[in-house]
Amino acid sequence: MIQTIGIWVAAFLTLCIFSFLYKDNPFYKFAEHLFVGVSAGYWAMYSWYNVLLPNLGRPLFIEHELILLIPFILGIMMLLRLFPKIGWISRWPLAFIVGMTSGYYLVTFLQTNALEQARATIVPLQNINNIILVIGVITGLFYFFFSTEHKKAVGVMARIGRMFLMVAFGASFGYTVMARISLLIGRFYFLLGDWLRLL
């Protein structure tokens, strides 16, 4: 019985969302607000029980890991923005997060996005695939030079690089659209099979 109610509710909400294809309407608004509200509540509780309590609450207040006083204080500073007169204090933890992130990711990104990519591109030019790979990467890099005017040889290289990018985007577009259609088919399968039992 409960499962049947669940299927009917899911089918109703699916149709509510699908109704957006016609135009914005009260059914879509209802489903949208329900979705946003339920998910916001879910994530608030999820963060409390799976992030805040296990990573800060228990280790700090029960196991007395005093190093965690630093994030605790930063968190309190962030909450001070609720009080307009001292709200400026919340900029400090924000500045800490942004600065720390930029520094922390410098090495990671340099390794994964530069060194590893360069390594993977260094291949012997013994077949057409490798030749296309090397030309694509080199001309693509030319496209992303910002401090040089894209004229003459640099311009030609950048244009070829741009063509490579567009071909890659086209292939990726087609691939992802096919994946999205399979999701749509899954939804129709639910409506026609689980709900209407026509399949």
């Binding site: 969302i17 979705f35 946003v36 339920v38 916001a40 994530w43 963060s47």
Partner: peptide
């Protein structure tokens, strides 16, 4: 303003 952490909940809210 904050909507929700949920990916598609956020997309639905933005669409609205």
């Amino acid at each position: 303003f904050y909507l929700t952490d949920d990916q598609f909940g956020f997309a639905a809210g933005c669409d609205g």
